[in-house]
Design a protein around this nucleic acid. Structure first.
Length: 599
DNA sequence: CAAGTACGCG
């Protein structure tokens, strides 16, 4: 086997070991392995002609043949030189077939001929590795050239830095950046911002800090663009206290915040429900003319208020920001519309939409999906109309909008329109996903018995190749609710075949099934199984158990379960109380009825 | 560089 038939990885390893031990061996075995063809070599070796032949072979991608010529140069005294080699490599890089393997084969030849690489050798090599996208090998070559006493150029390192960033190899990017700093190079600002940003977004906040402080120490990159991603990352991961400390530290260092810096803190505080602190940040911004609170800052608090169920206050804040001359944008409206629709506050929705249109703003796909809450609250007609209007206004829609619209059709009891809607979305170039089919499945499950639903479930070509947990739970839940044991068994079997494990929702459904068919003992068994082996029951699970117990006359046991709620790490909800209240009422009724009968 | 969507259990 000749060296040239080795796969690139092996050769790479070989070259590496050659370099590492600097033990440049004799090339005799290599020479023997090369089959020299006469056609490329003139009878009277003429240097210029050989070089020309060799270069044209290399430029057309014939590595082995060009090497044969190169090797033949040994017949000329003092040849081949490293300059000949560099020219060869350069010509090869012009070939359209250039690849890592070819580059490494050429390297191996250089080593075996004991040619000492010079600076252009390394630069050409780096250019080639960059060309074939081998950033890691490129970086390793940089280390070797440093060992040889050559200094890699700013451009070479900058290219490596950029490539590592593009391929998200952040640890390598940091190493390159550190080498650049050691050599006195300052990486370009947009790239450094990208690095800090990527590190922050991927939870590598400590590395981001390290990079930041390293560069801050060098006196560069003092703009807030540089550290805002870190502030946001801290606030998003619930570390608003660290964010605040960082914020104050850089301020002390003389760096100047912008709106985005403050908004990060506003986000961090309001996300934790610390609205007083969030509003204080807004106040401070108002005193700082260069950081006057903008729509994003207000919207951040509005979103959190909505998340905490304080929709009325978010409406007030909307009015306040307008009064202060800060115009809400479509995002602000979408957030409030979503909250209003969850609370079924139809009148407010109409008013808000009117104000939105009055300002000449156009709703977008998020506006359409924001209204989905209305559906669950029973305002189907209103949601249907609003969403239809939004879709027909010609905005760019996506699969989520279609899914919500499908939901409308389901609730509007227009099941015949469902599949034609799926066809029309495919025609629009939007691929249905599992949510699309789960929505339709849910609609089929409304029709009892479940034959049609089961047929759809087993017959449809699921996207992503298979039904997911939600799909299984949807049909399982329906079957359990009506106590259809054959469908329950079928679904559980299918889950086993597909290797999908029941989660807390599925187990809760099964408990409901056992409760419905009067089998309290199996219902309890499922619950005990969950306690011992997981998944951990939710408050819905415990409510289901309590219903089952009450239904089967075990009101005392239901009370005990209720009293144990806390020991499972759960808090009762309003339904938990209602279950016991209703059970107590029923008991009283029964006693009264028995009394009346006796009299 | 920052804020916002859709499906399953009661």
């Amino acid at each position: 086997m000749t060296l040239f038939s080795l796969p690139a990885k092996k050769i790479c390893k070989k070259v590496k070991s050659f370099y590492q031990f600097m033990s440049i061996s004799s090339s005799s075995s290599l020479a023997r392995s090369i089959d020299i063809t006469e056609q490329h070599i003139p009878h009277r070796p003429d240097y210029v002609e050989l070089i020309r032949n060799m270069q044209s072979l290399a430029a057309s991608g014939n590595v082995n043949q060009s090497l044969q010529v190169f090797h033949f140069l040994k017949n000329i005294h003092g040849k081949p030189s490293i300059y000949d080699y560099n020219a060869l490599l350069n010509c090869y890089l012009k070939s359209k077939d250039v690849c890592l393997h070819g580059i490494l084969v050429l390297q191996l030849e250089m080593i075996s001929l004991e040619l000492q690489p010079n600076l252009p050798t390394f630069n050409t090599l780096l250019k080639g590795l960059n060309l074939v996208g081998e950033t890691k090998v490129g970086f390793w070559v940089v280390m070797v050239m440093c060992k040889y006493g050559f200094v890699p150029s700013f451009d070479a390192l900058s290219t490596l830095f950029k490539n590592f960033l593009d391929s998200m190899e952040l640890a390598d990017a940091i190493t390159v950046m550190e080498l650049m700093l050691e050599l006195g190079y300052v990486p370009r600002e947009p790239k450094v911002i990208l690095l800090v940003n990527s590190l922050s977004k991927h939870g590598m906040i400590k590395d981001a800090c390290l990079v930041f402080f390293k560069l801050l120490g060098k006196g560069c990159f003092q703009s807030s663009y540089f550290y805002n991603p870190m502030l946001w990352s801290l606030c998003k991961s619930d570390q608003v206290d660290s964010a605040l400390a960082f914020f104050c530290y850089v301020e002390k260092k003389g760096l100047v915040h912008n709106e985005c810096s403050y908004t990060a803190l506003v986000y961090g505080f309001s996300k934790k429900g610390l609205f007083r602190e969030a509003f204080r940040c807004l106040k401070i911004m108002e005193t700082d003319l260069s950081c006057y609170p903008n729509a994003k800052a207000y919207t951040t608090i509005i979103k959190s208020l909505c998340d905490y169920g304080r929709v009325k206050e978010s409406l007030c804040l909307l009015g306040e920001m307008e009064k202060k001359g800060c115009e809400p944008d479509i995002v602000t409206y979408n957030i409030i519309l979503r909250a209003l629709s969850q609370e079924n506050m139809v009148l407010e929705i109409y008013n808000l939409c009117e104000s939105l249109y009055g300002k000449g703003m156009t709703p977008d796909r998020y506006t359409a999906t924001a209204l989905s809450g209305l559906l669950k609250r029973g305002s189907v007609g209103i949601a249907h109309n609003c969403i239809r209007d939004i879709i027909s206004s010609g905005i760019k829609v996506d699969v989520a909008v279609y899914n919500v619209y499908l939901y409308c059709l389901c609730y509007a009891r227009e099941p015949e329109g469902l599949l034609s809607m799926v066809r029309s979305m495919i025609q629009d170039g939007i691929e249905p996903n599992n949510i699309t089919f789960n929505t339709i499945l849910k609609s089929f499950c409304e029709d009892k018995p479940l034959d049609k639903a089961l047929e759809f479930f087993e017959g449809v070509d699921w996207p992503e190749m298979r039904p997911d947990l939600v799909s299984f739970n949807t049909i399982l839940s329906s079957a359990c609710k009506i106590g259809d044991s054959s469908v329950v068994h079928r679904v559980v079997d299918l889950m086993e075949i597909e290797g999908v494990k029941l989660n807390v929702v599925g187990f809760t459904c099964l408990m409901q099934y056992f409760g419905n068919v009067g089998n309290v003992s199996d219902c309890l068994k499922v619950f005990e199984h969950m306690i011992s082996y997981g998944p951990h029951p939710s408050v819905v699970t415990v409510n289901t158990l309590m219903v089952s117990l009450c239904k089967n006359g075990e009101v005392e046991a239901a009370h005990q379960v209720f009293n144990n709620l806390k020991s499972y790490g759960l808090e009762p909800d309003s339904r938990s109380y209602n279950i016991l209240l209703r059970a107590a009422k029923n008991q009283r009724k029964q006693i009264l009825a028995a009394d009346t009968n006796r009299r």
